[in-house]
Design a binder for these strands. Sequence first.
DNA 1: TATACTTACTGAAACGGTTCAGCACGATGA
DNA 2: TCATCGTGCTGAACCGTTTCAGTAAGTATA
Lengths: 343, 343
Amino acid sequence: MKSRTTIQDVAKKAMVSKVTVSYVLNGRDADVRISQETRARVLQAAEELGYRPSGVARMLVNQRSGTIAVVFQYASYFSHWSSFTSDVMRGVCEAAVVEGFDLMLHTKATETVDQELNQLLDGRVDGALVLRDGNDPMVQQLINRGFPFVLFFTRNYDPRACFVDSDNYMGGQIATDHLIKLGHRRIGMVRGSHQSTSSNDRFNGYRDALESNGIACREDHVLAIPTPDSPLGGLDDLMARPDRPTAFFIWSDDVAYPVMGRLKELGFECPRDVSIVGFDSLPSSELCSPRLTSVKQAIEEIARAATQMLVARINGEDIRQRQQIFPLTLDIRSSTGPAPDLT
Amino acid sequence: MKSRTTIQDVAKKAMVSKVTVSYVLNGRDADVRISQETRARVLQAAEELGYRPSGVARMLVNQRSGTIAVVFQYASYFSHWSSFTSDVMRGVCEAAVVEGFDLMLHTKATETVDQELNQLLDGRVDGALVLRDGNDPMVQQLINRGFPFVLFFTRNYDPRACFVDSDNYMGGQIATDHLIKLGHRRIGMVRGSHQSTSSNDRFNGYRDALESNGIACREDHVLAIPTPDSPLGGLDDLMARPDRPTAFFIWSDDVAYPVMGRLKELGFECPRDVSIVGFDSLPSSELCSPRLTSVKQAIEEIARAATQMLVARINGEDIRQRQQIFPLTLDIRSSTGPAPDLT
DNA sequence: TATACTTACTGAAACGGTTCAGCACGATGA
DNA sequence: TCATCGTGCTGAACCGTTTCAGTAAGTATA
């Protein structure tokens, strides 16, 4: 295991001090003047030795790593690396390249919050993009420490926190409005976790859309997302009732697919008997049959915005707005249609 | 910008030397004995100051970062962060967590190979998982430098190189065999780049399967994957001919979808008029209509295996086998059926 | 001929840890 | 009483850079 070529090696070969090598290689012509001959000698020595400066040593002295961390939820019912995550990463990568930052991934299922914090605070990253729930204990710790981070796809209203999120409330509204306009009056929802802000916001949007149209929001038409324990449990019962929903607004496309599958098995044709609106507008929603109407988040844009906001924080710039909320749009496809006549 | 709490601060507060702090915090009881009182004092001081050791300083002295890089192709017709990439990352993350390594992402579109190398060789990572084509100039550089890395989903037969790959040749074979067994004799292919080993292997498997069944491989039945410039150009012409293929083996599912779409527009029903076999068996292939028969790679497994191999290399273990090749399977769905009678 | 100003370069300290060798002290054994 | 040993701790060197303050020599200015 031969050890790395250091700046000292280059210095010796070029018969100058390592300081000179540093100045030449970093092109700091403004600060220190180096003669052309010396410069050439240094450059050649570096070239011949195949010298690569140690980023680690640099980080240590500069107190800056030029790297940002992306922190994911480490466990969830859905896979970490779904299409959603892909879009997120694309946005983050793009923005990071532009801003000149490298990326670290923190999806590690460490034992304790403390261990996770060690990872983030050990100087290897200048800041973090956090895709955890805004109430995660770790988030509070980061706030208290004054560590530069930006939440995305979630919220935390602490005045010291920054976040970029979709307008989930609006998402619930436009999905529900669309169904109401199609004549549906009994609109069910398959909702996400009660712990998650996004989930609650979507639900509130759904409820308010109903109520502002004079439709009562019925608890018994709201189902929880399936888990390994209770996979679509309530759906069969609900659809067996005479006052069954004629449409569903569903937490996410990933959940909408199996729901559509189950409804078909139960003999309901979509959209003739029941309409479905999903959330995320995954690429697959264009391929499935019927093509799924779905609320679309500007995932890449949000990811880019969050990255830019983080970089601004790292650079100590004044953040004009610490909260950014992006509007949502509805991709109308063929899984939604006029309400059936059930009289 | 208050500077970080250092080991020195803890030492002062606990009234010991920083060496003692280091020993206590690292639990090096075997090497150096510390009294219970001192230990307690140090621990408390560290706790009260909220001390987090600098990973950077550690890396510098240990000459080891506990981090591996994942290097992606920086440009391609397909999106970086497709479902394929998701699966790859899931496998890599899992294995990295188990092995105790952190992850850096290198998808950066740097100007030159040299700049990219700087990134990898600057000591921030102990090794790299490389998802570039095996002939990428960067790969050769890494080999020459003796940098620990493992290629995956591609190959390089240099004896100093390590790789983990799918048996693409076999993939081409089983896809084609399946079609032949269904009675197809005129089987087209939409092939990938001529530069990529995987692509050539798949093609060779396809060709050999044909020929070992007494069917000539016809150049005019082989199309290139669509690019922004020539989107599915040759397909229309090919299908207009009387000796058109009755089946296609297609480079990837991502390409298969638009091909299926176009065939439908041209009035061909799948699988009645034409059968399609894709490659990757994406989740969407279960959702699209008809459900797409597709060759499946053990993506996560390969990613895990590559990660483990890399860690072994980093740890200086003797690598038993520097090449691992994983078999492929065929997910038979409804896009393939008996050959139509075209007489 | 003394003074100031460039030019070209360098020594030493710092960044925040780890490791090695060694030291002071009290207890033990001969 | 002296050598030996174990215990508990520390000084100094080191990892590979950058930065600050300075120095020595040559050149222009007065």
